[in-house]
Amino acid sequence: MRKPPAWRGPVLVLVALAAIFAVAPRLYSNESVLFTMMTFMALAQGLNLLYGFTGYLPFGYVGFFGTGAYATSLLVTFTSLPVIAAVLLGGLAAVVVGLILGPLFRLSGPYFSIANLAASQIIYNVVANEALKPITGGPYGIKIEHVYAPTASYVTMLAILLAATALAAYFRRSRFGLGLRAMHQDPISASLAGVDIVRERLIAWLASAAIAGLAGGAYAWNLSVFYPEAVFTLQISVFAIVFALFGGVGTVIGPLLGAALLYAFYAGIGVSAPQYFELLYGLLIVLLVLFLPNGLASLLTRRKVDVL
């Protein structure tokens, strides 16, 4: 039997994602829920690029998201750039912050995670500092409601989600991704085998930062009036991590499924049975940890299904 081309699976997933989120607003008019779902899917996928392929867990992932949100908002406020360009530059700003934080890779395990968390809080406190009020708005927040465009920001977030998924597919299928996974399992052996550990890890880190920065930019565009805590809240990091783990990291569809299902569940309970929210959500996560520690994707991998 002829082996199907390696790109077919990822392309199918990309087409499915695009089709679903293109059609969904016609079926369900609360576009805000769909937008937020895409945001968390993109973030879970962005986090997957780093954690799923290198094992470095960035607790402060929200720092890149907030950086992108603020960079985009400031560019919209102080320049005449089109909003799309501002969003792209928001992603670039997150990459620059990622480069500055590159030395964190001297740490590993929980030390890296905690240092990363501290870095995100530093960025937050700088942005929210009242001394920067003329620039960032400080604690007063920022307003870009003159460019508020929910449909355009929705399409932009979809494009970012597709880009994140394409990157994850590249990581999953390419020689580069193979190097990352080898490094994850045994960095010394990987290094001896010719994997440039520092370079590859930095690329994964910057790609992950770029996705968060882009998502932050599109999120800011959609929100248009917000305070620093809205884009730097640790809840964003926690959700991205939980969603990615729920679906299964190191795969392409795992974080997508995890974020989509868990966020739908989250939104569903929030509307139908808010009084049971903590109980049901907590129970679900406990069950996941007990019975599916490798995420939903492991249900497929156990059956020898290629989960992309």
């Binding site: 569809i253 499924l257 299902l261």
Partner: peptide
């Protein structure tokens, strides 16, 4: 895999 992925995403949309 694709079917599972699409079904999951659609299920969440329907939910």
């Amino acid at each position: 895999a694709w079917t599972a992925c699409a079904a999951g995403l659609l299920a969440s949309g329907l939910a």
